[in-house]
Amino acid sequence: MLKALLFDLDGTLADTDPLHLLAWREVLKPFGLEVDPLFYRKRISGRLNPEIVKDLLGWEGERAEAIIARKEALFRTLAQGLRPTPGLPELLEKAKAKGLLWAVVTNAPKENARHVLEALGLEPPLLVLAEEVGRGKPDPLPYRVALKRLGVGPEEALAFEDSPAGVRSAVGAGIPTYALLTGHPKEALLEAGAKGVLRDFREVSF
């Protein structure tokens, strides 16, 4: 029996990926890196910031933290007037009426996650941050932590993601997962293990 809905944040609750792309483009431009949509999908989307910076620039430690801080500050400046993915408010109302639990599971830094949730007017009962559990997606740990804290089994939950890394994380935790087509092609999401793809939450039915 379904007891909980688990949501990724960026690209799932709101289409924030275009803003992240713009922010990364701006901070990486001085280093000769051109961040177009294909580059973003392949090298950035769904990954933790330290991994991104190490991969693209070979930086770790304070130098990496400084450029990450610049990028995230720029993102928060851009992320004003965010709107939820169509169908999300209605889905959460249905979930509440059915007594379902829900949580947000994200690789986003805490400050960004709270900024986006506040902009969307959302207060999830549980927020699981990869940076606080020690490993990020595609590792299954963030979703395993969410299941444990909610007290539900993987077969009693549904996950919603938008990136192959996120899908692999949720599926790796044993959770049936649906993927939104906000940033990645259908084939890549299904290959990662998604049960199906959605244009938005208006296509969800219990």
Rank of each mutant, 00 (worst) to 15 (best):
E156F: 04
F160V: 07
V152T: 13
A194T: 11
P89W: 01
L100F: 09
I68K: 03
A113W: 00
L120W: 14
L33I: 15
G172N: 07
K29G: 00
A95E: 08
K71S: 10
E191Q: 14
M1V: 13
Y143H: 11
W102T: 04
R43L: 06
L82M: 00
L129R: 11
H20I: 00
V204T: 09
E203L: 13
Y178F: 15
L190T: 01
V197P: 02
G153K: 15
A23P: 05
G32L: 03
I52F: 10
E161D: 06
F201Y: 13
E62H: 03
L189M: 09
G61E: 02
G99P: 00
T77F: 06
P37W: 05
V171I: 03
E191Y: 04
E60M: 01
R47V: 00
V105F: 14
V105R: 10
L190I: 06
A69Y: 05
V128G: 09
E34H: 12
D8H: 11
L74Y: 13
G174E: 09
L6T: 13
L19C: 05
V197Y: 01
A146S: 08
A119F: 01
L120K: 13
F206K: 02
P124H: 04
R114Q: 09
E62T: 06
N49Q: 12
R168Q: 15
L126C: 01
E65R: 15
Q80K: 15
L28C: 04
A79F: 06
R168L: 10
A108T: 09
K98M: 15
L13M: 14
V104M: 12
L101Y: 00
W59G: 05
A188H: 11
A146H: 02
V128L: 10
P86G: 05
K98G: 09
A64T: 00
G99Y: 11
P18W: 03
P176L: 13
E60C: 05
V171C: 03
L120F: 13
L82T: 08
L101Q: 14
R43T: 01
L74C: 11
F7A: 09
P140H: 04
D8G: 10
